[in-house]
Design a protein around this nucleic acid. Sequence first.
RNA 1: GGCGUGGUACCCAAGUGGCUUAAGGGAAGAGUCUGCAAAACUCUCAUUCAUCAGUUCGAAUCUGAUCCACGCCUCCA
Length: 465
Amino acid sequence: MKLYNTASRSVEEFVPIENGKVKMYCCGPTVYGYQHIGNFRSFFFEDILKRVLQYNGYDVTHVMNITDVGHLTSDEDSGDDKMEKKAAEEGKTVWEVSKFFTDIFMKDMELLNIIPPNTFPKATEYIQEQIEMVKELEAKGFTYVTSDGVYYDTSKFPDYGKMARLDIEGLRAGERVEFSEEKKNPTDFSVWKFSPKNEKRQMEWDSPWGKGFPGWHLECSAMSKKLLGNHFDIHCGGVDHIPVHHTNEIAQSEAANGEKFVNYWVHGEFLLMGDEKMSKSKGGTLTIARLKEEGFEPMHYRYFLLNAHYRKKLNFSEEGLQGAKNAYEKLKERILSLKEKAANENLTDTPNNYKEKFLEKINNDLGITEALAVLWTMLKDDTLSANQRLELAYDFDKVFGLQLDKIEKAEAADDIPGEVKSLAGQRMQAKKDKNFALSDELRNKIKEMGYEVKDSKDGYELKRL
RNA sequence: GGCGUGGUACCCAAGUGGCUUAAGGGAAGAGUCUGCAAAACUCUCAUUCAUCAGUUCGAAUCUGAUCCACGCCUCCA
């Protein structure tokens, strides 16, 4: 299969380090707030990547960190700690805040049918590993100490910014770049930060350099090393991580470990809202819970995401989501009717190449939109038996993750209130008596109670609205 | 200011030199069915790919210019 590698800025053939196995690390959430649907676009893309790897027969070890250490509101080592700030606002401990938002995150991941990573390491549970890495960097001469922390000297790392193709001179000339007096280079960053002298932090640890907390790029380097090794296959995240976060991870890991860090860097694009990036600072973020309030199920959002390639910006709109909802509901109907047909049908096997087409699409840098087109075309192909189509749909769904195999008749008869059922029965009788005025009246009554009556050849069907 | 990405139908979007006389979905319209609806099914829906030049036997796809939008350089998926 082929994947776009940010490091080479080109689509490359994927070759794992160890035959048949893939180790991948994905940057996870910071748990001082709700993850919005834009954040989930990234986790969704990583899920698709993992599913495609698995579909190709790879044994995937997937790690996603939980950033529960508060970072500062600025990358320039100033500002408030977001975690501590949130805790103060809520009158809770930072640990409570972290747990609260982690739990919600996990729940949303499940609702979106994202396969859980093998491990969800928390930054606070790997403090020792992070300290070890700073020690290693210090021993190798990559660090220096200032009044507020231990810093990484990026001028010591020859290839600094190579993946991101950073123009260091350009950064220096930039209008918006300011940097602290004590930093030797504008791109230097802290690997260990000292606790402020005059205040007690809720999260702080002893270290050889004094009480404090780890720098915010360090956890990924330290935890991936511990869980996946010095050198592994794939590292994912949002495109915003390219210039700073991932650039610094490479610098730390390769300097400390003395070997190549990651083979394939894969980044997902943003979800936009009103042509602008959806972000907390710009307001107007939406959560899975909020979508539910608006009548959209997590699967509707998942289907929505399936409509765009992961490296393209995707504009979120209610209209777009509604379109995805309609499409997904139709897809469900189609699966249901195939299930009925399949039950009483002779097993036949018509030769076809849909699976090959599907594989070709997903293996071409996760061509999920085209793969979805293959699904639709296949479902409409009458030369295939219902059984064949169902089988293929379930097979493709290993990648789509739309829970097609879980689709049942919308309403089991028991769930419908007796009164609604009785009204529906009366309507049927009225219809038989050709009393259409009464029949329509009853249908409206049922509708008011939240159900829709659909007539079929041999009766009727009730569906919740 | 520096760096980068993208502009394809009413909407979301594939496609990145000939197999495409531009996928798929949504919306819309027409028809079949129906007492009427709904659902389902069938059909229709871009001679055109922001604009203008150019390269080529051939361009949505390559080159240049222009216009527009967005992202990164600030924690951010």
